[in-house]
């Protein structure tokens, strides 16, 4: 069926088979491959994107379910001039990654968390990213990065 999805501010209309998962539509239909497929079972969070601003796991949503809505992927965070989003900058500053596979999902989960809780403590950060698994177990620096991004946003607002 024909559907329209706004991804990172750009509208995409396509003929999509109803059983197509949102993550596959983003990666293969629209061609944005920053969103990863990890476990494919709603567990690992590698496929996390924002749907109308809220984090979701795009392996567990049909593309046709979000017809007419707006999705933000990792490619949509940086400014047009390449300036990194504060959460991206904090992940780089604090080396919040090891192999990097979980990173796009971690960053999107963190952006959603900070939109809901601008000043989380460490426990709130850990709970806020509980839907994202890092198999390098690099959580320490990820948590530091999210806390740092929170204080950077606070300082900048």
């Amino acid at each position: 069926m024909e559907m329209t999805l706004t991804v990172n501010g750009t509208s995409h209309t396509a003929d999509v088979e109803p059983r197509t998962l949102l993550v596959h539509h983003i990666r293969e239909g629209i061609g944005l491959t920053g969103t990863n497929v990890g476990c494919d079972t709603t567990s690992c969070g590698a496929c996390t994107v924002l749907l109308d601003g809220q984090s979701i796991k795009s392996c567990t949503v049909l593309a046709v379910q979000v017809d007419g809505q707006s999705v933000t992927t990792i490619e949509g965070l940086a400014g047009a001039d390449g300036t990194m989003h504060p959460v991206q900058a904090a992940f780089r500053e604090h080396h919040g990654l090891q192999c990097g596979y979980c990173t796009p999902g971690m960053v999107m989960a963190a952006v959603s968390l900070l939109a809901e809780q601008p000043n989380p403590d460490e426990r709130a950060v850990r709970e806020g990213i509980e839907g994202n698994l890092c198999r390098c177990t690099g959580y320490h620096n990820i948590v530091q990065a999210v806390l740092s991004a929170a204080s950077a946003q606070e300082g900048g607002s």
Partner: peptide, 9 residues
């Protein structure tokens, strides 16, 4: 329930 992403959907 689940995690934040699950609770959003």
């Amino acid at each position: 329930v689940g995690d934040p992403q699950v609770r959003h959907r």
